[in-house]
Computed example of a mutant assay.
Amino acid sequence: MQDPLSTASGSPAEATGKKQNMVLIDSASNQGFKVDILGYKTLAGSNDPRTAQAVYFANQTDLKLKQVCLTLNQSEAIVEAGALHYLHGHIELQNPVGGVGGLGKAMLKKMLTNETAFMPRYQGSGSVYLEPSFGDFLIYNLRNEEIIADRGLFYCSEASLSVGVAMQKNVSSALLGGEGLFQTQVRGSGIAVFELPVPASEVRCVHLNNETLQVDGNFALMRSGRIDFSVEKSSKGMFGSLSSGEGLLQTFRGTGRVWLAPTQAIYNQMSMGGLSGLSSAQHSSRTTT
């Protein structure tokens, strides 16, 4: 399989004698399948002054433009519709609908999970490059297990994985937990890539061993293993809830993993009000009620 950072013969980079302007951020591979998260070291700028100013600040803050590359060797990948940037090699696009019934299921899945209705499948040998973005990504290798993720986080995976819909077990969790009634279910064995709302380095993975994790806010991204999700009061009595200053907590019980994005609420506040609203410590990010 070709290294995605290598320079093909006759390419512009080779012709000009310039070095590759890309770094490898993360990578994972299984037999016949490899995923690389690539990052552009810097952006060269633009002849438009306004764009050049944005590029300057991106470079100064080390905000990297990223790109996911899938390398296939007689294998198959599932990708979010519209994510393809370019591909090369001997790869065929498969986009099975499965008749009227398949169309109905796909549209229902889109409505429930915020994922695209039809996920193209790329089959063969070669490289598939997905659209560059300033987003952040998490690679996870499932081993005969299940991931329940927030709607819209799934980005791409090996075709050995099944991507479907997971329904909350009780109405109170759906109405009060801030996650909605339906989430995305990824099941099986293989590599999956999830698009994150915060940098991957700021995501914390909490391992539970027949334990309980309670979260005051909506910053739990996904969970794996035998973990039950519910919404509970922070204490048994009304007086205890009032005196503690907390209300309802997202509660995870069992054995498995829970991925948290503790900085997500801070970025949301900064996008709405800049830094002025963060001059003092925030007491709670609050679970939706």
Rank of each mutant, 00 (worst) to 15 (best):
H90E: 15
T113K: 02
L84D: 01
N114W: 03
Q264K: 14
E246C: 08
G104Y: 09
V186A: 05
N268M: 06
K41H: 10
C69M: 11
G102Y: 12
S75K: 07
L275I: 11
N209S: 13
A174E: 01
I139D: 05
V163K: 09
Y40D: 00
S125Q: 09
G89K: 08
T288V: 11
P132F: 01
V203P: 02
D228L: 12
M22F: 15
F194Y: 06
L278C: 00
M119L: 14
L70R: 05
L221A: 00
Y140C: 01
L221H: 06
S172C: 07
Q74G: 01
Y155K: 02
G89V: 08
G126W: 03
S276H: 11
V97I: 14
G164I: 07
E158L: 05
L130E: 03
V55N: 01
A149V: 10
E92L: 11
M1H: 10
Q123A: 12
T113S: 04
L93G: 03
M222Q: 02
L103W: 12
H88Y: 15
T255D: 08
S157P: 01
A166C: 07
G245L: 08
V206C: 10
G45I: 08
M111Y: 09
S276G: 09
S172Y: 11
R257F: 06
G188I: 08
S284E: 04
Q53G: 08
T61G: 01
L108R: 13
S235I: 00
A52L: 13
K18D: 09
S125K: 08
V35H: 00
A281Y: 11
V231M: 00
G102P: 09
